[in-house]
């Protein structure tokens, strides 16, 4: 999708840069820049913005970030392999709509939730089959299913809302751990984060995802079943998005077909801000989580100082662009500087 097609991975340094290995020691772990930035921002905001560091506010902030971080987990893996799934937010919407419809039909939530998760898996499998079996570009496929799944959500529930979910479930969805203000749901989220992080960074499968992202042909020749791996990643994205749909419905206490519209862009923004290359092959989970938190914190802090909601969009967009332009510029500067030295020897 870019003009320049030289494969770069300025953030992770996972590609060996065409044989110029010596600069390795200087590369920081993926995502460390954005994490540092996040920590700095949190410190500054806590000092400068009144009410930012309160437990109440932290709780709200985390609640806002939960679904984005959740969906970012499988989507990061997909982006690392060089594919993309833009249909995740529509899967959230369709799951929410189906959940509402089934609840309206009188089924218990204990039955509904597994059904919805399976549905999410099926939706993901459709994406996966179209991409891996028919060899269609995932960008185009998931723009198609973005419209298709959202359309189905409206077919299922129309413009109605189902809102009479049991109190116990909806209060659980927003309740905090003791008096800390940290939402209860952060715990299962962290478990999923841990599983994904280990899978991505410490298993052969995780390494194979980077291999695919850097060169699909090379990955295939080295014995990786590229199609099967990608298929299951899309299924995972479907299931996790459905889980996100269930949580979204409970958190807002309302099942609607238009739930989470446009969320895919926020998730993708968090992933890219976190230093994952849109071409695949580089980036890590730490950066993505930091990216998601940074986006949410900046918006939250600006809201607290009464910056109009409109400006937040400008900040989000600018952050995203700066995040991708900055490494390019530094890489370009680094490339220019050592001209005199015999680097190519």
């Amino acid at each position: 999708m870019a003009v320049d097609t030289t494969p770069q991975s300025p953030v992770a340094g996972s590609a060996a840069g065409g044989g110029r290995a010596p600069r390795r020691p200087l590369t920081l772990p993926s995502g460390s820049v954005i994490t540092t930035f996040l920590v700095l921002f949190l410190v500054v905001a806590s000092v400068a913005v009144e009410g930012f560091a309160s437990t109440r506010n932290a709780g709200f902030l985390l609640l806002d970030v939960v679904v984005i971080a959740l969906i970012a987990l499988p989507l990061t893996l997909i982006v690392v392999t060089g594919e993309i799934d833009l249909s995740v937010a529509s899967t959230v919407g369709l799951s929410s709509a189906v959940m509402g419809k089934l609840w309206f039909a009188g089924l218990p939530l204990e039955t509904i939730i597994p059904v919805v998760l399976v549905l999410g898996g099926v939706l993901g499998a459709v994406n996966g089959l179209l991409v891996t079996r028919l060899g269609l570009p995932s960008l185009a496929v998931t723009i198609g299913t973005l419209a298709f799944y959202r359309g189905l959500a409206f077919v299922v529930l129309g413009d109605q809302a189902v809102a009479d979910f049991p109190r116990a479930w909806t209060t659980w969805a927003i309740s905090g751990i003791g008096a800390t203000g940290v939402p209860v749901v952060v715990v299962p989220l962290l478990v999923l984060v841990a599983i994904t992080a280990v899978a991505l960074h410490a298993t052969p499968i995780g390494r194979s995802l980077y291999a695919m992202g850097n060169s699909e042909d090379a990955a295939r020749f080295s014995g990786i079943d590229v199609a099967r791996t990608k298929f299951w990643l899309f299924v995972a994205a479907g299931v996790i998005s459905a889980l996100g749909g269930v949580y979204w419905t409970l958190r807002y206490g309302s099942a609607r077909a238009d739930n989470a519209t446009g969320l895919e862009l926020q998730v993708v923004a968090a992933i890219l801000l976190g230093g994952v290359s849109i071409f695949g092959g580089s980036g890590g989970l730490l950066g993505v989580l930091a990216g998601a938190l940074l986006l949410a914190s900046v918006r939250n802090a600006l809201q607290l100082v009464n910056v109009p909601a409109d400006v937040l969009n400008i900040v989000t967009g600018a952050l995203l662009i700066v995040a991708v332009v900055a490494p390019q510029v530094t890489a370009e500067l680094r490339r220019r500087r050592p001209r005199g030295r015999p680097a190519a020897a």
Partner: peptide, 28 residues
């Protein structure tokens, strides 16, 4: 940004999707 900074257009225009909309609201 796409041509000079050599950044993928998908990312750049996703960014400006937000930024231009924000500019619009800010102006209004």
């Amino acid at each position: 940004i796409v041509a000079v900074a050599k950044v993928p257009s998908l990312v750049v225009t996703l960014g400006t999707l937000y930024a231009f909309r924000g500019l619009d609201s800010l102006w209004a």
